[in-house]
């Protein structure tokens, strides 16, 4: 991320943090109860943390206002084109690698108990090699099968972890 984009992301995050802190404080005060000074209730510490988060969020926002004046100007004048291209390529990397990667892990988690360890792991590895790394099929198949087998031996045999056999099949 270049500094201008980071700055914008930080600004947005700091606002979210203020709102989040306020919510936590309100929730703790309303639902968890603060209790008395001698016997603070369940909501006492979370309330304090919520307030602190809100204050820190505000301080963070103030900080982002102070820091980045210089790169902004640069962006407006000469480097605008370059920076925009940089942002473009960053976005395409996110779309082509990060997004499929994360979705694959979520899918893996969803399949893990349902399809069982073997099926879900092989599918995940195949998906990863094809969608994220764009490998050819032969290499994909070898990598998928060997790594699934290796992890099976390691966890199920050596470490005696009980891996799911799949609720769909039984």
């Amino acid at each position: 991320m270049d500094s201008a984009r980071l700055n914008r992301a930080e600004k947005a995050s700091s606002v979210v943090l203020v709102a989040f802190g306020a919510f936590i404080a309100w929730y703790s005060w309303h639902y968890l109860k603060l209790g008395m000074m001698i016997m603070p209730g369940a909501g006492f510490l979370p309330f304090c943390i919520g307030m602190i988060l809100a204050v820190l969020g505000a301080a963070w926002y103030a900080r982002t206002l102070l820091a980045p004046a210089a790169p902004r100007k640069a962006l407006e004048t000469g480097e605008a084109g370059g920076a925009a291209a940089g942002a473009e390529s960053a976005r395409s990397v996110i779309l082509s690698r990060l997004l499929p990667g994360v979705l694959l892990v979520v899918l893996y988690a969803w399949l893990f108990e349902k399809a069982g360890y073997i099926v879900s792991t092989v599918l995940f590895m195949v998906g990863w090699q094809k969608l994220v790394e764009r490998e050819e099929w032969v290499k994909t198949a070898i990598v998928a099968v060997t790594s699934a087998a290796f992890m099976y031996v390691l966890f199920a045999r050596l470490l005696r972890v009980s891996l799911p056999s799949g609720s769909w099949w039984s």
């Binding site: 893990f112 792991t121 995940f124 590895m125 990863w128 790594s147 992890m151 470490l159």
Partner: peptide, 18 residues
């Protein structure tokens, strides 16, 4: 990375499930 990353993911997923 293409090999390391998915294997580490397997590690974390199986580890947290176990």
């Amino acid at each position: 990375f293409g090999l390391m990353a998915p294997v580490i993911i397997l590690f974390t997923v199986i580890g947290s499930y176990s």
